[in-house]
Every structure is written in structure tokens, then in C-alpha cells.
Amino acid sequence: MKYAYYPGCSGHGSSVEYETSTRAVCNALNMDLVEIDDWNCCGSTPAHSISHELSGALSARNLVQAAKTGADCVITPCPSCSSNLKMARWRMQKPAFKDEVDSLLDAPTPANAEGGADLLHTYSVLQAIVENVGVDAIARRMSYPLEGIKVVTYYGCLLSRPVEVADFDDPNDPVSLDNILKALGAEVLPFAFKTECCGAAMGIPDVNIPGSLSGRILEAAKAAGAEAVVTACPLCHMNLDLRQRQAARISGNAPFELPVFYYTQLIALAFGLPEESIRLDKLAVNPKPLLDKIAARREARVQASLAEARKAAGVAS
């Protein structure tokens, strides 16, 4: 498949490590990405709170631009962008909404036989990997298992919701990230907070709200025995990683010191991709102790294999 790639605003700024690791992983999985020319902000957080039509117009323009690439569909790493692009296409199946959106654009969007908009489908990168590439392909490509680490997966509230628009995974108990991490050799712990909201949209107007909500998520992760949190969302990552000390203070907890990874960083690590594409240096909470643990387990496994080989050679001789 050929994918029209929408990086989103954060991909070229605050979540550059997500962007570089996503591109590296997609390349390793032979996914053909073509970045959408002249893309614009999809308006995922501020626009839809003011006007559904404005939000729809911002996303519709991106989808029109995407069609010019000749791609089969649109993919984006950010769940918020994915949700907004999907929502715009879904709403624009109604001719009246399409007309409202078209009035805000330079040219009307293409129409289908029912009078709605004829726009490409959008998928999150996670959805495209799981549904079009497959977890088995990830396991086959793995070079360095993530042995000996205990993680919880945090999906946030947008990846699989609303159900009729997202059309991906279970809205209450998603497992796509779980399956990927298990295939990479990590121990994925049960986690009741995997779809709880972290309050990302309130990060600017009132830090106490995301601080309290994120603190509850991190506290639950620690209580579950996790050594790291794995997520797929730039906004969630910012709250759980960059603002972790703030979340601890606001929620009244001791420092969590829990590394928070993008799932693409861990896939890239297990694939043995170049460090500059993984950008672990961008994480606010130091992941080195956990990475050292993975390396030590890996080295122990190598030494055990060598010992077995020497023993077998000795017996054979």
C-alpha cells in the first residue's frame, strides 16, 4: 500500500522523537510513506471546540491534498490528528455538512454518489501497522528482544473512540500495543487505566487538571509494578513524561521516575535501528537504567548460548 503521511504539528516540534522513530519503523517494515504536500494544522484541539465546520474544513483540506499523492489512504502518528481527520470524513458524508465545509474552502471537496464528500480514509500509524503489516511481521523483524522489562500500555482516550468513527481495537480494553510489546519480548502488565484521560487538552488553561489526572495514571502504573509506560500519543506523552514531576507534586505523590516511551521507539530499539532515529535523548525521565537492564539480559542470553555451544562442541569432540 501507498500511504499519504500526515506528520501533524507536534511531529515537527515537541514530539520529534516520535516522528523520527515512526518514519524509521515504517521504513523498516517496507511501508511506503509520501508526506502530504502543503499540509496544515488539522485543528484537533482548539478548532473543534469552537466550530465543527471550521475543524472539518481544516481536516478536509488535508484529505484533499492527500488524494493528490495517489495514495490508498492517509496515516498519521498522532491519535488526536487521526481522530480529527476521521471525524471530518465521517461528518462530511452528510451533504449539508459538506456544503458548510466547502463554503470555507477555496474549492469544493469531491462528492460521492450520495452527495457526501469523497475523501480518503484515515488510519493511525498504529492501526496501519497492526492491520496491514501485522504483529507477526514485527516479531520476524526483531533483532534485539526487550527481555526482562515490565511495562504498561497507555492508549489514551482517542485511539479507539468514538467507536463508529475510530473503527479500531476495543474502546474499553484495547490490545494492539499490548500485542506488539509482547511480540518484542516485554512483559506487559494488566493496567486498568489504559484508556483513562490524562487531561492533555487542559494543559494550558489549568495545569492542575492534567497534573491530577496524569498523577493517577502514573500512580496506578507504579502500583501495577511497571518499570515504564508505553504510549502512542504526543499529548499524552508530554503529560506523562515532560510533566511527570509536576504531576507528582499536584497529585501529592513521591517522584515516579517512570520512563515513558513511544511504542515506535521500542520497536526501533528491538529492530536495532540507528540511535539518531530513536532519539531516546529527548525523554525527560532518564531511560538509561531500564535500557541497561535490557542490555544486561541480552548479554546474559548471549553468554548462555555461547556456553551451550562450547559445551556441545566439547561433547562432540
Rank of each mutant, 00 (worst) to 15 (best):
N30W: 12
I267Y: 06
R140P: 10
D32W: 02
V16E: 06
A4T: 04
L306Y: 11
M92A: 03
Y18H: 03
A96S: 12
R298Q: 15
I278D: 08
S124W: 02
G314P: 06
F97G: 02
V151C: 08
K86P: 06
E53F: 02
G272V: 12
E131I: 07
Q127W: 07
Y5S: 05
K182D: 04
G115C: 09
N84A: 08
Q244R: 11
D241H: 05
K182P: 00
Y18T: 03
S103N: 14
D170Q: 04
A113T: 13
C78N: 01
C41L: 12
S124Q: 05
D32V: 03
Y123N: 01
G185H: 00
Y263T: 05
L146K: 00
A137N: 12
R249W: 12
L85D: 00
A247P: 10
I204E: 09
A295L: 06
V163P: 09
H237N: 04
L119N: 01
D38H: 11
R245Y: 14
F271R: 00
M238P: 00
L85V: 05
M87W: 12
C198Y: 01
P108D: 04
A304N: 04
P210D: 11
S212P: 04
A66K: 02
A183W: 00
V125L: 11
L120T: 00
N30A: 15
T76I: 04
R61M: 05
G116N: 05
A60Y: 03
C78W: 00
C26R: 07
L184R: 01
A166Y: 00
N132V: 03
S212W: 09
L33C: 12
V188L: 07
F261D: 06
A107F: 12
D102R: 06
H12V: 05
I204R: 09
L280Q: 06
Y5W: 02
P255K: 11
I50T: 13
P162T: 02
R216A: 15
R297G: 12
R301I: 03
V151E: 06
L258Q: 04
L146W: 02
E187D: 03
D37E: 15
E35Q: 15
N132D: 10
A268P: 06
L105R: 06
I267W: 07
P289F: 09
T195I: 11
G56T: 01
Y263P: 03
P289G: 10
F256S: 12
G115V: 07
T122D: 02
G225R: 05
A96Y: 03
S124R: 01
A24W: 08
T109K: 06
Y18W: 09
P259W: 07
A96K: 14
S83L: 14
G43L: 04
L158M: 15
S14A: 13
K2A: 05
R245E: 15
K282I: 07
A226G: 07
H12G: 10
I209N: 09
E219A: 15
G252I: 09
A309G: 02
K288G: 08
E131T: 10
L235A: 09
P234I: 04
L242R: 06
P174C: 05
P259L: 04
V175W: 10
A200W: 03
V207D: 14
K222T: 14
N62R: 02
A4R: 01
H52L: 13
S59W: 01
V230N: 07
W90P: 00
S317A: 13
A166H: 08
L181N: 07
V25R: 05
V315T: 15
I278W: 06
D102K: 02
L189E: 09
